[in-house]
Nucleic acid binder design. Structure first.
Length: 484
DNA sequence: TTTTGAGTTGTTCGA
DNA sequence: GTCGAACAACTCAAA
């Protein structure tokens, strides 16, 4: 009879692809049991939100990095593909594991899946332990004075800050007892990378997936750009944001690490305090989105405000395609959509602009924008994506008011004043002068000639007139107000 | 207990 | 050219 302490412990990696500040890993090491790290590619658990295309590219590289880091500790990462519950069951039986550890996920389908797995393990006398690696505070621990979850961001974040510092991040273990390894898939066989065509070519120069890349990014940000964050974070033509979102989504770095690293840098380098606080408050928006999803499981599919169920959306496949391909004729919108396609990421300010354009200028259902982002963003995250689209559409928590309809020309002129961002992503407008680059249809003929731009040929005419579209959107919103 | 004021990210209009 | 008001409805907390 094998003693329990000799039986292996499955360490189930999911959206926590890191060794530092990984509570499930630390507890596994502390148990003294041999540790068997495993990742399961699960396209079979029912649910509409399979990992999107761009995120698969990231996942491939992140798993490769994690696998390398684990091997350095002497414990290879076991890869399996299939329904999570069946795979865990198989692995437990193959290895005689006595326990399974994992860090929590908050997607509704993941919670349901994990509950079922925990119950099944318990029934078989296998220990199942869950930990928090992904959030500063668990969603059920932040409540307003009535004991309800917050529905307004500022009050939510105030309450989080009042809780004081979140726990200090855990160090990465420097050694672990490895279990003898069962068979593993080879990551190449999972075909996570695009081939024909390879649309991810532009991703490689933009990103370094993996824990190491995440920390380099954070360090570089805290070194300098964080001081400019408050003033310049809305400028897509300037590198003033952290670009940590995909690293955060895959858990290559966690919010506790970001929190404490930022606070430490503030103390050590005399950082611009307001700027650093602003940065942390963006981490707060991520927390807010996660608790919204936790308390509202249909957030990705259905409007939080029920009256929006009757909103008069206009289905329009042609306009949707033009938006997706960056061919709307509005330069700032097209630049954003092309940046997204080329790099798997889009600057946050521009996300708001393109989202407002889809939802308010085109009146296309926000779920169609959400679906496109889900497939094309390397940082695609169910909570952030759903909450943010609902926020822009006006049907979410603490949402943008109905009358806030971004004017793509004004937004372009305000946040990309020289047109550098447009020139980078919409090269056919590269020779347009700044004064006209955000509204080429109003430019004089000689300016157009000199820039070599022919509307309708080298660059599209606007697919809608913004003024007309704005009136139409206000009318649509007033109709659900009356109906409500 | 009730009231009041403030609230991530905007635009337009008219003075 | 600049500036304030108006554009809902609701949540939350302070008074």
């Amino acid at each position: 009879m094998t003693r329990d302490s000799d039986r292996p412990l499955l360490l189930w990696f999911r959206q926590d692809l890191r060794l530092a500040d990984n509570p499930a890993l630390c507890a596994a090491v502390a148990s003294g049991q041999p540790v068997l790290p495993v990742y399961i590619l699960d396209d079979e658990t029912p649910g509409p939100w399979k990992t999107g295309g761009a995120a698969r590219w990231w996942l491939h590289h992140s798993l490769t990095a994690l696998s390398r880091d684990l091997r350095a500790l002497g414990a290879p990462l076991i890869l399996r593909r299939g329904e999570s519950r069946r795979m865990i069951d198989e692995l437990v039986r193959e290895t005689g594991a006595a326990a399974v550890h994992w860090n929590r996920c908050y997607e509704p389908f993941a919670r349901k899946r994990d509950e079922a797995i925990k119950a099944a393990l318990k029934q078989d006398g296998i220990e199942a332990r869950r930990f928090n690696s992904a959030l500063l505070h668990e969603p059920w621990t932040v409540e307003n004075k009535s004991g309800e979850p917050f529905r307004v961001y500022s009050a939510f974040w105030r309450a989080c800050l009042a809780k004081g510092d979140p726990e200090k991040p855990l160090p990465a273990p420097d050694s672990l007892v490895a279990a003898s390894a069962p068979a593993s898939d080879s990551i190449g066989d999972w075909e996570l990378l695009p081939t024909k065509p390879n649309w991810a070519k532009g991703f490689e120069s933009a990103w370094t997936p993996g824990e190491n890349g995440a920390h380099k990014r954070l360090t570089a940000f805290l070194d300098e750009a964080v001081n400019r964050y408050k003033a310049e974070r809305d400028r897509p033509d300037i590198e003033a944001t952290s670009r940590l979102s995909p690293h955060l989504h895959f858990g290559e770095i966690g919010p506790r690490q970001i929190w404490h690293a930022t606070r430490a840098a503030m103390a050590a380098h005399n950082l611009n305090e307001a700027s650093a606080e602003k940065f942390l408050s963006e981490v707060g928006w991520r927390e807010f989105s996660h608790q919204l999803l936790y308390h509202n499981i249909s957030l990705p599919e259905h409007p939080l405000r029920p009256e929006f169920a009757d909103f008069p959306w206009h289905e329009n496949d042609k306009a949707l395609t033009a938006w997706q391909h960056g061919q709307t004729g509005y330069p700032i919108v097209d630049a954003g959509m092309r940046e997204l396609w080329a790099t798997g990421w889009m600057h946050n300010r521009v996300r708001m602009i393109v989202a407002s354009f889809l939802v308010k200028d085109l009146l296309i259902p926000w779920q169609q924008g959400e679906a496109w982002f889900w497939d094309t963003l390397v940082d695609a995250d169910l909570a952030n994506n759903a909450a943010s689209w609902q926020w822009v559409a006006g049907c979410g928590a603490d949402a943008a008011p109905y009358f806030r309809i971004f004017n793509p020309v004004l937004q372009g002129e305000k946040f990309d004043p020289d047109g550098a961002y447009v020139r980078r992503w919409v090269p056919e407008l590269a020779k347009m002068p700044a004064a006209h680059i955000h509204k080429p249809w109003l430019a004089p003929d000689d300016v157009m000639r000199q820039a070599g731009v022919t509307l309708g040929k080298s660059y599209p005419n606007p697919i809608v007139d913004h003024g007309t579209a704005r009136d139409r959107a206000l009318d649509a919103f007033s109709r659900i107000r009356k109906a409500a």
